[in-house]
């Protein structure tokens, strides 16, 4: 198995008016080709920061973040990012959004090829009827699918997804999870997904990285024993329930640790 991405003793701290804020501390793990990594941890612990180092928006203070063996120097089309806020371009139609990356020098495609790629993802994401609509006419779930289609169109080897389904209702969320599994099956990509949902992490990921309250350190890395292709029936399996209660416990501990951190000193005792 080839190593796609590596966090090597990575730490990151921000200089704030109140002093140094350690956000990520001594994080090391590898993401292999074909892995589906889910990162889970309490809110505000540094998950987005960790991912944005791999996306290329932030540099580690110490340690190295490598992609394909080289230090990440900035964002690039081989690492597709799906932002929590969707980020679909409101001034472009659905189809133009998907085509956006293909009109750039970095991954230019001829018109015919571009059309074919757009049509493929319009169809796959169930957006064909809205090809010429503007995003203002789309629901939240459709915007999310559009963001995914747009990221996929430039054929990244690696997908970074920051709580992509967090804002969706339960039904849409579960549809989106199944769609993601289906797409991965046919397109085979490496994924790093941030989530708050333990079920989502187990259902989708091949490996789960549980991180601690801020500063984010690795608490435990868990291999998920289910093989792909997966369907919803695995959620009924006893292993699923066991894993769930184990991870919940870990996350709960960290959540409490975080609450304790935040509590003002005068209130303790």
């Amino acid at each position: 198995m080839t190593k796609r991405a590596q966090f090597d003793k990575v730490s990151l701290s921000f200089e704030t008016p109140k002093g140094r804020l350690n956000v990520v501390e001594d994080v090391s793990y590898d993401i292999n080709d074909g892995d589906f990594i889910a990162v889970i941890g309490p809110s505000g612990c540094g998950k987005t920061t960790m991912m944005s180092m791999l996306a290329g928006f932030q540099k580690p203070t110490t340690g190295k973040v490598l992609f394909d063996g080289r230090p990440v120097a900035g964002p690039g089309p081989e690492r597709g990012v799906i932002f929590q806020e969707y980020g679909v371009f409101p001034w472009l139609t659905v189809k133009q959004n998907i085509a956006f990356g293909l009109t750039l020098k970095a991954n230019h495609a001829a018109t015919a090829e571009r059309d074919a790629i757009c049509d493929h993802y319009l169809d796959l994401m169930g957006l064909s009827d809205f090809a010429n609509s503007y995003p203002k006419h789309l629901s939240g779930g459709m915007r999310q699918r559009l963001a995914i289609a747009r990221a996929y169109a430039v054929k990244p080897q690696f997908l970074l997804m920051d709580e992509p389904f967090g804002a969706l209702d339960a039904q849409t969320r579960s549809n989106m999870q199944n769609l993601l599994l289906k797409v991965l099956e046919t397109e085979g990509k490496t994924v790093m997904l941030i989530t708050h949902s333990v079920e989502e992490a187990i259902y989708l990921a091949s490996r789960i990285v549980v991180v601690t309250a801020r500063p984010a350190r690795i608490k435990e890395i868990i291999d998920v024993p289910f093989t792909y292709p997966r369907d919803e029936s695995i959620q009924e399996r006893p292993e699923f329930a066991e894993l769930r209660s184990h991870i919940r416990q870990l996350v709960m501990d960290e959540y409490r640790a975080q609450q304790a951190q935040m509590r003002p000193v005068s209130f303790s005792e």
């Binding site: 928006f57 089309p77 932002f83 806020e85 980020g87 750039l104």
Partner: peptide, 25 residues
């Protein structure tokens, strides 16, 4: 800055970001 970041992750260079993202905005 979100839209600029999105464009960067899709491979846009500085000139493309200006022409295709900043001008429409």
């Amino acid at each position: 800055p979100l839209y600029i970041r999105v464009a960067q992750t899709l491979g846009a260079n500085q000139a493309e970001i200006f022409r295709k993202v900043i001008i429409p905005l």
